[in-house]
Design a protein around this nucleic acid. Structure first.
Lengths: 258, 258
DNA sequence: TGCGGCGCGATTGTATGCAATCCGCGTCGA
DNA sequence: TCGACGCGGATTGCATACAATCGCGCCGCA
């Protein structure tokens, strides 16, 4: 239930802990991160800390220079819009694939047990989110929002897209930390519609709804920093929807799932 | 000149070496990678090897299970088209930003020295590529192609987009390794046009050309596996070009470039 | 007073050693 | 004959120890 069920191995815990501190602003960009201090704080030796720092570096949250050390990277503020643009393409793909998998394409005769488990979690998530909306608990909504999108990526069955999305959505969450703007509850109901389209196996609808949804959040974000006319300009443009060929070609790959 | 000039630190070397072996097919998906064997082969201890494996895991080329070990991940064949779709959005952004930087936007008064150095490298690259086309040296062309796109990402000045692109383009190269299809030299001349648009600071043209270029390579790839009518369908659709708000808002962030 | 070189403390990079865990195989029992 | 149990080798996970490197402040010198 806590995001990743198989967590427990120290380096992974460290990565999650540090990334969280970075994303939510506890660790200000530019802050020096010494291996020893992290090791002490978490009661481990420097070896797992080093591994964690390497992973965070690969994800772009930390910059390291050899023989000198690691610092918290700069928040990619001026890349915000581009990140949203990429996310749009990415999530359209995950939504589409999730719907296709619901129809039992992609080589599998029908969605595997794993798919259904994630699907159930998402259902629960939606209810929790509705509750949070009622209660006005925006912090919780932020977290649920993130988990919803990651969940859809898991439904898509694509490890690659999932990895990319996780990186992207963490970056975007980081951007939100720049000020106290909290993502509105306005967009929450979209999620239920998206999940319905996935359930129905309607990949076109899933893709379109997700595209629209991400696009709206992009507009919402940009509205804080960009001149109004530019935002209006973006809003006027019809949703992108890059056509993707549904590819029921190759069955499941051979080597990974052990 | 060899891809990354400041390389030399062992873990980075290991990451590059292993990733290369994976991408070019020397290490077949599913292959077990034991830390000790890698350590012996490279004459180091297991510690840097572990760090390298973590990084590769974060990039998605390796899957590790705790207490068991690491294996080469499965090639994401059935995600090919989605990867191309994401790459399209990504590279449109990098091309656009590169052109904007050429115009001296983004807070900087004019392109910094670093920009010009990369720009010069790209110029050289184009000439080398023309040569390779003449000589029919397709292997070399593949490498140059990769370096061109990564170079444009560097011109864009965006570490985040650069990281994402590197991951994506490695994955896509991995896909190409699936068979002996070699990326045609037909698309090589596009690069010169793209670079010209960047030089001119024409961000709209740069974005459009890059979008078209990536799209063409996507079509070329898919033509090998997909039914002809689907490919024709994709080809008929006009280039996406998700509108991006050029954001000259925030100057350079404070903490990173040391 | 300004500046260049030097040495020390701090930190990173890596090797080694040992405990923990897992997988495969042989043995025992029904 | 078949299945369950248990043991041994192999491998991972981590802590400790030590060498290498860097930044920074101090001192000497012009």
């Amino acid at each position: 239930m806590p995001a990743s069920p198989s967590e427990g191995t120290p380096p992974v815990v460290l990565v999650d802990a540090l990334r969280r501190e970075i994303v939510d602003g506890s660790l200000v960009p530019g802050t020096r991160i010494t291996e020893a201090s992290v090791a002490r704080r978490h009661g481990v030796s420097r070896v797992p800390v080093r591994e964690a720092l390497r992973a965070l570096e690969a994800e772009g949250f930390v910059v390291s220079t050899p023989n000198v050390g690691s610092r918290v990277a700069a928040i990619p503020v001026d890349e915000a819009d581009d990140l949203f643009a990429v996310r749009e393409a990415l999530e359209i793909s995950t939504a589409r694939r999730a719907a296709l998998r619901a129809r039992g394409l992609f080589g599998e005769p029908s969605p595997p047990e794993d798919w259904w488990r994630t699907r159930r979690e998402l259902g629960q998530l939606l209810d929790d989110g509705d509750e949070a909306v009622e209660a006005g608990d925006l912090d919780r909504l932020v977290e649920l929002n993130d988990r919803f999108h990651v969940g859809v990526a898991r439904l898509s069955g694509s490890a690659t897209l999932g990895t990319l999305l996780r990186q992207l959505s963490n970056k975007i969450e980081w951007l939100y930390a720049l000020d106290t703007f909290s993502r509105g509850k306005r967009l929450w109901p979209d999620h239920r519609r998206i999940l319905s389209a996935i359930d129905a196996g309607d990949e076109a609808a899933a893709a379109e709804l997700m595209g629209w949804h991400v696009r709206e959040s992009r507009i919402g974000f940009l509205a804080r920093t960009e001149p109004a006319d530019r935002v209006a300009d973006l809003r006027a443009t019809p949703p992108a929807l890059p056509p993707t060929i549904p590819s029921p070609t190759v069955p499941a790959p051979s080597a990974s799932s052990t």
